[in-house]
């Protein structure tokens, strides 16, 4: 987080804020609606995505649960999930709060957004699968905002069964 960045957004940022919030909503809706193929497209080509526990994040661990350095690794995740991995059918519903944005630089915003994800199995079992916060770096230099970095910091270090859909 850039310590020099003003805490409040400038008036001229408000339009961008709406765009970013829409993008955040589209992101979780894509996952929840099983349109996983769209997931990598929310990132820049060199975008970084990681799921890590709060404990590991605080300890500065490099390895969390899942780590994609660049869009290619995300596409491989999607293909693996569709064609290779075996798991019981299930779906997520994400509930996200209003993102708190801060200007990081002319081209980047920092964002923090808390989330809760429920998971519903094919037999109807439904439970809270994950909660935590997204810590993002959003690139606004192009027409559409994209994630330069999306860090998913989970409250719990424990996953129930397995994690195959991104969060």
């Amino acid at each position: 987080m850039n310590a020099e960045a003003p805490d409040q957004l400038e008036k001229s940022d408000i339009g961008l804020q709406t765009q970013i919030e829409d993008m955040f909503a589209d992101y979780v809706h894509s996952i929840d609606d099983d349109d996983i193929e769209a997931w990598p497209e929310f990132f820049t080509e060199t975008g970084f995505y990681q799921i890590i526990s709060r404990e590991s994040h605080a300890a500065g661990h490099a390895i969390g649960l899942l780590h994609c350095d660049g869009k290619g690794m995300m596409k491989d995740r999607v293909k693996a999930m569709r064609e290779a991995n075996i798991f019981e059918p299930h779906r997520y519903t994400h509930v996200i709060e209003r993102p708190r944005l801060k200007r990081h630089s002319p081209e980047l915003f920092n964002a923090r957004t808390n989330f809760i994800v429920t998971r519903t199995m094919q037999n109807g079992d439904m439970e809270t699968f994950a909660s935590g916060k997204y810590l993002d770096l959003v690139d606004v230099s192009k027409k559409t905002p994209k994630f330069q970095k999306r860090l998913v910091v989970l409250d719990s270090r424990r996953i129930d069964i397995l994690l195959v859909y991104p969060l």
Binding site: M73, N85, L162, L163
Partner: peptide, 18 residues
């Protein structure tokens, strides 16, 4: 990078969770 292969979200081995 290779840690992606195993663990609860392991590309190669996540099936073992179920």
């Amino acid at each position: 990078n290779q840690a992606n292969l195993t663990g609860a979200a392991g590309l190669v081995s996540l099936e073992d969770g179920c």
